[in-house]
């Protein structure tokens, strides 16, 4: 009997990895963006597979939609000729390899450090337990300052620490507002100061 969860996980993961590599090895900017979209969509597929519908839809809306804006600006602001091509020289490859492989090393060691993630192959019983009815309510309540998943915490001191994400949420909102105003300020039509000497 095939474990279909593993099968689809591998499928989406392979698609994501393949197109991630395709992004690196393609020269054309727009093709890169297109491959990036496919890679990110496959990642969204992984989220849907893990029953994290909200995160999956978020991935589609923000990352895939954001790539589109990136593509538009990339083409509008950088295009000299009809099709933009990028060439990477040896030094850049070297730096990219060093950075990429060190990040990979850090991530792999971090992932295998976590005790509870080293449970061995996941059987049917374990997959069944993750097959809950997934909703976005805990996330929404947590953003409002109530962690529904942390109600059972017996220690009162710890419980008051798990009081949701209201403050980070507000900080991010203010930050975005600042960015928005800044962008509007930079993009405004500048008033010309008249040169009175002429």
């Amino acid at each position: 009997m095939i474990n279909w969860n593993s099968f689809f996980f591998l499928l989406f993961a392979l698609v994501a990895c393949f197109f991630a590599l395709a992004v690196v090895f393609t020269g054309s900017v727009v093709r890169m963006a297109f491959f990036l979209v496919l890679c990110l969509s496959a990642t969204a597929g992984l989220f849907f597979l893990a029953n994290a519908d909200f995160v999956g839809a978020m991935q589609l809306l923000i990352y895939v939609g954001g790539t589109m804006v990136l593509l538009v600006f990339g083409v509008m602001l950088t295009a000299q000729g009809p099709f933009v091509r990028m060439k990477t020289d040896g030094g850049q490859w070297l730096v990219a390899l060093i950075v990429g492989s060190s990040l990979l090393a850090v991530l792999i060691t971090a992932a295998f450090r976590v005790e509870s993630w080293r449970r061995g192959p996941v059987g049917e019983a374990a997959t069944a337990s993750t097959n809950l009815d997934p909703t976005a309510t805990p996330i929404g309540m947590a953003l409002l300052g109530v962690r529904v998943d942390a109600v059972d915490e017996p220690d009162a001191v710890l419980r008051s620490g798990l009081s949701g994400y209201l403050l980070p949420f507000e900080i991010v909102s203010v930050h975005l507002l600042v960015v928005l105003i800044g962008a509007a300020y930079l993009a405004r039509t500048k008033k010309r100061v008249r040169d009175r000497t002429v």
Partner: peptide
């Protein structure tokens, strides 16, 4: 049936223009 149906529909609907942009760019 998705618990976040509305959100999913809106998110995916926004992807339709990706094809349009690709078409516009690739036509030269």
């Amino acid at each position: 049936s998705l618990n976040i149906g509305v959100f999913f529909v809106i998110a995916v609907l926004g992807l339709e223009i990706f094809g349009v942009i690709l078409a516009g760019y690739a036509s030269a």
